[in-house]
């Protein structure tokens, strides 16, 4: 049983096709979870952005190039399922993947994700993501960008960073 599992694990690590299909499935599940179930975790209209955490994960495992594409596709997927203006999340998450990709170090993905460094990267990516997203979100409105960003952007960044604790702990335990 243990042998079968390790074979599957090595196949997953070595075969990029399987990995990317797997990323696609996870992104799809996370976007549905976000739209359907995250209302239960809503605090003052703020929810953690699971797809952003996933984008950062992919960027740290696969690199900046894949991270950007993953961010773009995750954002596009989310825009479609959440009835948001198509392209806003795609743009914001592309930049999040771009930022997270800067921290990519080949062969050290587990070390990065399993440490508090992961939370720092998620926080930075979320901050940039929310800045871009709120800019486009508020563009047609009369609301003050700074006030809105401080109220919702920062809160969303903190909540998303908090949600990043779970993959961090999971990877940390798996690493040990």
């Amino acid at each position: 049983m243990a042998t079968k599992s390790s074979i599957r694990s090595s196949e997953f690590a070595s075969n990029p096709n399987i990995r990317f299909v797997w990323y696609g499935v996870v992104a799809l599940v996370l976007s549905v979870v976000h739209v359907v179930f995250l209302r239960f975790l809503e605090v003052s209209s703020v929810t953690p952005d699971l797809l952003l955490v996933f984008t950062v994960w992919v960027a740290l495992v696969e690199g900046q190039f894949t991270g950007m594409i993953a961010g773009f596709l995750c954002g596009l997927l989310f825009d479609v399922v959440s009835t948001d203006v198509i392209g806003t999340n795609a743009l914001a998450k592309t930049f999040a993947g771009f930022i997270a990709g800067y921290f990519y170090r080949e062969g050290f993905a587990a070390e990065q994700i399993g440490s508090s460094r992961f939370m720092f990267i998620v926080a930075l990516a979320a901050l940039v993501h929310n800045l871009i997203y709120n800019f486009f979100f508020l563009r047609p409105m009369q609301t003050s960008f700074m006030m809105f960003f401080l109220q919702y952007g920062v809160a969303s960044t903190l909540y998303t960073t908090t949600a990043a604790v779970f993959p961090m702990l999971y990877t940390n335990r798996k690493k040990e």
Partner: peptide, 19 residues
């Protein structure tokens, strides 16, 4: 990476313009 970023940004903005 830079070219990909530019392409993806242009695509995102195009999507946003279609609306």
């Amino acid at each position: 990476n830079a070219i990909t970023l530019i392409v993806l940004v242009v695509m995102s903005l195009s999507f946003m313009s279609i609306g």
